[in-house]
Design a protein around this nucleic acid. Sequence first.
DNA 1: AAAGATTTGTCCGTATGTATG
DNA 2: ACATACATACGGACAAATCTT
Lengths: 249, 249
Amino acid sequence: MNEHFPIDRRSGISAWKQIADQISRSIRSGEYDETGMVPPETVLAERFGVNRHTVRNAIAALAEDGMLRRVQGRGTLIEKRERLVYPVGRRTRFSDGLGSQAHDLEMRLLSTRSVPASEQVAAALGIPATQSIVLKLDTLSLADGEPISLSTHYFDQRRFPDMASHFERHHSITRALVEQGVEDYFRVSTEVTGRLATSEESVRLRLASTAVVLETLAVNAESSGQAIQFSRTIFAAERITLRLDTQGL
Amino acid sequence: MNEHFPIDRRSGISAWKQIADQISRSIRSGEYDETGMVPPETVLAERFGVNRHTVRNAIAALAEDGMLRRVQGRGTLIEKRERLVYPVGRRTRFSDGLGSQAHDLEMRLLSTRSVPASEQVAAALGIPATQSIVLKLDTLSLADGEPISLSTHYFDQRRFPDMASHFERHHSITRALVEQGVEDYFRVSTEVTGRLATSEESVRLRLASTAVVLETLAVNAESSGQAIQFSRTIFAAERITLRLDTQGL
DNA sequence: AAAGATTTGTCCGTATGTATG
DNA sequence: ACATACATACGGACAAATCTT
């Protein structure tokens, strides 16, 4: 393979960072699986067309993250990981879907706020576009301690005034909804787009700067068809595959 | 709202890049939908705690991408680039799904080949892993002349020996299947992953070198449940949003 | 129509960080 | 360790275009 991207000096990203990202990506794509090692610094330097010092900087950053381990006289060893499969279906639930693939699932509450509903949110929730107040819940999901996704959930303030406190007690949206009289709910629609992570997302999801994320917009509704939740979720693409099952009917 | 993250000076990402990312994200989240404009440079500079020139750099980068347009004396206008929505559901068809959103849909045949089935392909098609021959169809799909996706479709050679010629006549998989006795078929499963485009994909889809793609693995089956098609499709993420329909499941 | 406020465009210069040899 | 080159970031001043009063 060896298809590396050229280093872009005007991208606003320093050369060592770009190289670190590409090495990281090569590792993830399994390019070095045979040896379990990264090529020698001199080889990488020539391949990327940079000085060996720059490659050393890149490797140092990855070693800092624990992705690589440098051993003098031997080379640079790799530590690796797989993607989790996140099922998206009519009954999508965060913990149900990933439960079998990770030992420890965690959903951290980052912030809660009441804000006026934007047009998009109001339309999704089926509430008036003006003068509607929605509850905004920011959460970070982790699997075995590794950040998986960053979500913003919107609920109608009038319908679920105590969403925040219920969620803080259970750390689960499903349970918080049950406590507020929602017996069951369904995923109505999910839109998926792919893009580069913003710097903020890279920090929060512990990703490299040129990492890719999947952004999903989802609407959940009660059996009656009434929308109760609108969510924007940013998945770390390198750790997640979304699977849509359309088998049943 | 207005919750901007502080600029990280030690991240290896320049300030203007981080600011560009945050502005880009704010636009996507609809924060500026009311005015259709980005706040004045002086305001952004103060908000991010940087010099106005740095903000100008960030805006210049976004304007380069066509996301913003600057007008002297007036402000910086948002140019929302809309993506086509590609519905993925039980009855996913290329032309049906996009037909209403583009005037001209085209599916070009890049190559056809008969090859031994790989393990993955054989498993998906439900045929023996060894000594099975599959027909490999590479296609490029365009909407209004713009490349949308790059696909590789696999069919059991024994079941559809004339797939290539039928496809070349109709430029449609659905019609080619009909001619070979498949009255109807259904999407069984779809896996979605996000990643950076390879250099070859960038050329074929006319994308920048660091563009993002959505890679989908899909299996189609007849009413009987027998798998008839396995496809790997690479979507230009900047032009497509996948919509996973879970309404009628 | 004129004046003033707002906002982007452009120029100067200086300092710092990054990459190379 | 040092010299060099380049991109990045900051600070200030003014011009040009646009909008409001």
